[in-house]
Write a protein that binds this DNA or RNA. Structure first.
Lengths: 147, 147
DNA sequence: CAAGATTGAGAGTTCAATCTTC
DNA sequence: GAAGATTGAACTCTCAATCTTG
């Protein structure tokens, strides 16, 4: 069942490829995650920061957060700005290191994170129900082959 | 009210989260596409616009382009601003409809698009080589189940 | 000088409002 | 009024430069 791939380098604008359908699927999925979180008033980056703070169960420095979210520090500066404006986190000084600023989650932030996690669980439930185990492991295999 | 029960959210998403690995894989893949296009001086949105113009083989209005890329019209206004600054497209008036502005690809834009397509083909080659047909069709199945 | 965070500029995206033209 | 495009504001992200502190 392999009679595609006729001209490898010749045809430029002949779209076929699974690679782009995977990309498209990811966009769709990401959209669903965004919608789910949006219904509780959170964005994906905001939810990610709150989740890290909840799972650490302690304030984290902006540098640590940037590392965990795999983004640049200046990004975290602005993201925490918005979270602070929303009242979901609070900047606290680090007595150990006067250069450092830590983000501490507020009660409101904790509640938002829990609400977001709830929505994400629901989404995951629906997703899992519509996919059988064989396909699931095939995807896992394909994904790890990607790195 | 909110007794944070760690076992509730933490253990639930730990063992079984294909949804998130798919999301992660998409990020990785998207990063590779970005890198490939960046090597010829293009971003993904810019390449997409150029490709649409090449495949249409005629100028397209900004509204048409926004529709094809599934984005908002105001987005296309700014994107075409940047493409015009790069000398890759040119705004031309539509004699049929004085409200409308069309984007016409330049020779330089055509060359850039071809270079980008070349890089993407190479990427696709490498990807296809590392995926067998069974896994490929599993992905297709999973993707259609997603909508 | 290193490591923390911040600022400024720019790319990309969305939405709401506006302006011109049909 | 409805459909073209544009502008302004907001969010997310990156990079380069800067400022403070170790």
């Amino acid at each position: 069942m392999n009679d595609r791939d006729k001209t490898a380098t010749a045809t430029k604008s002949a779209p076929d490829r699974t690679i782009f359908s995977l990309l498209h699927a990811a966009r769709v999925l990401e959209g669903k995650v965004e919608t789910a979180l949006d219904s509780v008033g959170l964005s994906v980056p905001k939810y990610s920061v709150l989740s890290e703070l909840v799972s650490a169960d302690a304030p984290l420095s902006l540098g640590e957060l940037a590392g965990k979210l795999s983004c640049v520090k200046s990004n975290m500066t602005q993201l925490v700005d918005r979270l602070e404006a929303d009242g979901l986190v609070r900047r606290v000084d680090d007595p150990k290191d006067r250069r450092s600023v830590k983000a501490a989650i507020t009660e409101e932030g904790r509640a938002k994170q829990a609400a977001g996690a709830e929505k994400l669980d629901e989404l995951h439930e629906r997703f899992s129900a519509s996919v059988d185990d064989n396909d699931r492991s095939a995807v896992q295999r394909l994904l790890t082959a990607l790195e």
